[in-house]
Amino acid sequence: MSYIEVNNLVKDYKINVKKRGILGSMQSLLIPEYKMIRAVDDISFSIKKGEMVGFIGPNGAGKSTTVKMLTGILMPTSGNIITGGLSPHSDRKKNAARIGAVFGQRTQLWWDLPAEDTFDLLRYVYKMPEKKFKANMETFNELLGLNEFISKPVRQLSLGQRMRADIAASLIHDPEIVFFDEPTIGLDVVAKQKVRDFVRHMNKEKNITMLFTTHDMGDIEKTCDRMLIIDKGKIIYDGTPDDIKKKYAKYRTLIIDFVEKQSGIEIPGVEVCEDKGNKVQFRFIKDEVSAQELISSLTKKYEISDFTLQEADIENVIREIYEGGIKCDENLCGVC
């Protein structure tokens, strides 16, 4: 059963056109000019309870506008949204009681006070019974190690600590759905891992529906079962992160370490993309050239000390999609 149901969602903006130069700014001072922009262009999708969905797309593609409409901050121009039986905008307060939101770049914690003060405040904001509140704090402390830093002013915390506290603050009231906006931005590898593990754990444990908007493909690959790519206000891909790799990652890269320096190796269908003497990178289309045959033909001719085979990186695939290098396949994107 779907928890979020979005139908023919459209959002238009009127923006003020600014001109350059002194004369230009004088002109827009006296006669402002406006232009209509369609940020979200007739999109529909549905999300099941407990699903983990990643929203990706280049800046200005319409993903944050979509999220703002899903959370009830913005009202759609047309189309409708139902989350758990409510309209997020017209039932804002009721809806807000059961959603959580994490913004990687903006904390909801009181900057000059220890995080525990914010938690205390949130207890009243969400009208939590004391027992429930204590139990949740206990869980978060166990999983995120909050106690180490919960009584230090937030401004003194490391980014990783702050993020952990922020995520806990967004989940304290047992929301049914949580929105994450760049939850791992600026974090180091270890901190990222902690955040991702925690998020997965909470999803399994409490069946919380989670939506991520992020530029970090790692977040999506490690946490999401499903990925929506939005570009120019439209959904251009809806499927699993794995599928997109299988379908669009045409190239593989083979890196060979030769014992001796080699030059001028030519194999049909294989492109040498980097040649550092001993170390050579070959790129080939995986459906046309078999990696095994390539390796065996190379070992026959040359002495090889080591090799690595790389699958195409999802990040590259996504970049190519943004740049228009890959056209979406009708069969894969049911909603295109």
């Binding site: 600014k18 130069g21 002194i22 700014s25 004088m26 827009s28 001072l29 402002p32």
Partner: peptide, 15 residues
């Protein structure tokens, strides 16, 4: 100086 003038003009209501 010119830049400062321009920055001030941007805020229409203020002017």
């Amino acid at each position: 100086a010119k830049k400062a003038i321009q920055n001030n003009i941007v805020y229409r209501v203020n002017s």
